[in-house]
Design a protein around this nucleic acid. Structure first.
Lengths: 221, 221
DNA sequence: TAGATTGTTAATCGATTAACAATC
DNA sequence: TAGATTGTTAATCGATTAACAATC
C-alpha cells in the first residue's frame, strides 16, 4: 500500500459509492472493469477514478482494467470493513429498531453486540437477535467490552449526556442520528452525524429553484 | 435577490448547516452576529460565509453584521421552506414510522399529508395524526392531490416499482431511504438519496486509519 | 466621526481533468 | 506484437481565502 500524504475527504466519501457499485457488478457476475466503464456507470471521469484508487495503491492491470473481486476487497479493507468493529445501539425506539433490524451491520463487517434503552417495555427483549439492556448498565457494559462505534438514536436532549458516558467508557466513535450537536469535550472520539434535515432541505432547495426557473424558459433570440 | 449564475453544490449543502446554527442562536436569544463570529462557531472562514451569502443577496449590514432573524428567514426561504411543499411517506415500517413521528416535517415548512403501506395491520391507522392508506390507493391519491416530495421507505426491492408509480402520478421529488438506485427513466424527477452505509463507512475509514496511525506516533528528531 | 464589518474583486490553493509513457 | 488501459505527471478549472474599498 502506498503512503498517503493526507487523502482528501472528497476521495473518502467516494469510496463507499465505489463499493456499492462493485457489489452490484459482482452480483451481476462482472469479473473485470476498466476505469472508463466504471466512470461511465458512476458519472465520473476515468481520470478521477484512477486518481482516487492510486491514493491507496495499484489495484489495476494495464490493458485489462480492474478485477471486480480484488478491487472490492481492497476498498472494503481500506474502509475498515475487515476489522470486525464492535457496534452498540443506544436507543431502541422506531429508528433504533429499524437500524438493528434492517441496516445489516454484518454486511459491512461490523459486529452488532448490544442495544440499550430506558423503556421497560423493550428492556430484556431481543430485536433481530440483539439483546436490549437497560441504559443503567451501559457504563458497566463498556467497562467489560470493547466498543468501537456507538449508534446514537436517543431523544435529542439525551444526546450529550449519553455521549459523555460513551466517552468515559472508551467508545471510539459515535454515529449520531440525533439532531443534537455533540459538544462535550472528547478530542479522541470520532463523530459522524446523520442530519436528515440537511438532506431533505437540499432536495427542497432544488425543487424550489426548479419551480422558479422552469416557468420562464429561455427564448432563443 | 441576486442573479445566480449557477450556485455550486458545496454552497447549497452548507445552507442547512447555517440554518441549524441560526435556529440555535435564535433559541439562545442572540439578535445579531458577524461573519467572523459565525465562522468561528461553525469552523469556517468569515470569507467563505460572506461569499456563500452573497450568492443570494445582501443580507448583512456593514459595521453591524447579520440580523439572526432576518438571515434565518432568508435562508429558510432560499431552501424552499416557505413553499408549503406537500409530502407523503411510502412505507410505514419502523423507519417510516420514525420519520412520521419524530422528524418534524412541519418544523421545516413541509406538509405531511399521508402515508401508504401494504400491511393490513397498519392500514387505516394513524401515526402522529397521519392516516395510513393502502398502497393500492396511491395512484388514485396522486391523481387527486399534488405531492411535491415522496419519502421512499419501502423494502429495497419495491423501490423502483413504487418510483414509477410516483413519477406517473406527477410527484416531483423522491427522498430515497432504500439502498436501491432509482434507475427508472424520470428526467424531471429530483432524487435525493440517504445512504446510511456511506456515512457509517466513512466513519469506519477514519477509525481504521487512526488505529493504524496512532500506534506509531511521530517522534521529533 | 471612528470603528467595525460588509460585499466583492483578486490571489491562492486544492481538486479535477487531460495527457502520456509504461506495461500487461 | 498491437491494442488497451493503467499509474502518474502536468494543465486546467473551480472553490476557498485574503484583501480592501464601500458604508453603516
Amino acid at each position: 500500500m502506498k503512503k498517503n500524504p493526507h487523502i482528501s475527504k472528497n476521495v473518502i466519501r467516494r469510496l463507499p459509492r465505489y463499493l456499492r457499485k462493485l457489489d452490484s457488478l459482482q452480483a451481476n457476475g462482472v469479473a473485470s472493469i476498466s476505469s472508463a466503464e466504471l466512470g461511465q456507470q458512476l458519472g465520473l471521469t476515468h481520470s478521477q477514478i484512477r486518481q482516487d484508487f492510486s491514493c491507496f495503491g495499484e489495484f489495476g492491470q494495464q490493458g485489462y482494467g480492474y478485477s471486480v473481486n480484488t478491487l472490492r476487497e481492497e476498498i472494503s479493507n481500506i474502509l475498515g470493513m475487515t476489522r470486525g468493529f464492535n457496534v452498540i445501539v443506544i436507543g431502541a425506539g422506531n429508528l433504533g429498531h429499524a437500524l438493528i433490524q434492517n441496516f445489516g451491520f454484518e454486511r459491512y463487517g461490523f459486529r452488532l453486540t448490544a442495544a440499550f434503552d430506558v423503556d421497560p417495555a423493550v428492556i430484556g427483549s431481543e430485536i433481530a437477535g440483539i439483546r436490549v439492556f437497560p441504559s443503567d448498565e451501559l457504563p458497566d457494559y463498556l467497562s467489560r467490552n470493547r466498543v468501537d462505534i456507538a449508534v446514537l438514536v436517543t431523544p435529542q436532549d439525551l444526546a450529550n449526556t449519553v455521549a459523555a458516558v460513551l466517552r468515559d467508557g472508551g467508545v471510539r466513535a459515535i454515529w449520531n442520528f440525533t439532531n443534537a450537536e455533540i459538544d462535550i469535550a472528547a478530542p479522541d472520539m470520532l463523530i459522524e452525524n446523520i442530519h436528515f434535515s440537511d438532506s431533505l432541505l437540499t432536495l427542497s432547495y432544488y425543487l424550489a429553484y426548479k419551480q422558479d426557473v422552469k416557468p420562464a424558459p429561455k427564448t432563443e433570440g
